[in-house]
Amino acid sequence: MKKAYRHGLLAALAAGMMVAAGCSTTYSVDRVNTGGEDSLVFVRPDRYSLLGTRSLRDHIEITYETLTYDQATGYAVVRVGVRNRGGQHFWDRRGRDFNLAAQAAFYNQPVAMIPPQPGASFPSDAKGRQEGGGPGVSTPPVYQAARKTFALPRGQTQHLEFICPIQNVSGYQVVFSEY
């Protein structure tokens, strides 16, 4: 009887806590640590298949990525080659055409690990990705270009160019997504 009484008390307490939690006015939001993020990122896929995902990384690859500075103005110019390599798995050898959106944001501090030097371009690694481990994005961008939309049929390469009309930027991040 005493045990049953105790159980009832605990249940009532738990229920009270749940109710109290439900009555809370504000809640903390999740914050992400972007440290180590690349200068080129694909966002999470919006569709999942039975085998694997239909992630952009399964079909899209970066052929080059350069950051240069215009000599006359000092503006940062990011050029990226995006290629649709088609399907790379036995269950999907064909791949598909994509409608992609790319948006570049420029920062006063580097996003990837190696800060670019003015007037120099730094090539991508063999996999077309910048070396990770950089500070990531921790400040608001000094300039964000408009979202660039384009079609990328299988086997085609799109040459993208983003110009930051503000001087002295040293970091950037281009986000690719489907639309």
């Binding site: 215009d70 103005t73 503006y75 408009a146 660039k148 110009i163 009309p165």
Partner: peptide, 17 residues
Amino acid sequence: SAEIKQCAAEMGPKILM
């Protein structure tokens, strides 16, 4: 609206250059 914004964002910096 998307095209108008893209057009402006692409042409603006090019004019300044």
